[in-house]
């Protein structure tokens, strides 16, 4: 199957590959997997105390569409508030990368990775300031 030019661009020249230290301040880590194809995706977000995503890194083992979806997402979320990032739907990724129907699950994975990374950040933040009241989700 031929990949779209946007997928190819992210696949051959992925943006923001790598990782932050898991325990680094302000870092949220999300690891999500797709059992039907064996793919696994790690997305890390560096988030300010005000809840703005300052930087992102990813590492994905999987097909070109999974790599492209996560690479695109790292660009997409930078500078966004966590509420905005949480509102990102996989359909946006599908549209941007022209993903065919059989690859839609790759975009779902990337959407799940954002949510998992933010929830990890919130959890870690909560543990750090456990005397503070929990913020409503």
């Amino acid at each position: 199957m031929a990949y779209s030019s946007k997928v190819m661009s992210h696949y051959t020249n992925p943006r923001n590959v790598g990782s932050f230290g898991k325990d680094e301040a302000g870092v949220g880590t999300g690891i999500v997997g797709a059992p039907e194809c064996g793919d696994v995706m790690k997305l890390q977000l560096k988030i300010s105390d005000e809840g703005v995503i300052e930087d992102a890194r990813f590492k994905t083992f999987g097909c070109g569409s999974a790599i492209a979806s996560s690479s695109y997402v790292t660009e997409l979320v930078k500078g966004k508030k966590i509420e905005e990032a949480l509102a990102i739907k996989n359909s946006l990724i599908v549209q941007e990368l022209n993903l065919p129907p059989v690859k839609i699950h790759c975009s779902v994975l990337a959407e799940d990775a954002i949510k998992a990374a933010i929830s990890d950040w919130q959890k870690r933040k909560g543990e750090k300031g456990s005397n503070k009241k929990e913020e409503a989700a």
Partner: peptide, 16 residues
């Protein structure tokens, strides 16, 4: 298709 986080972490670790 969400898999348990610890399973995804295991798969990631091994793939790395």
């Amino acid at each position: 298709k969400q898999v348990p986080p610890e399973l995804a972490a295991l798969v990631f670790e091994v793939q790395e």
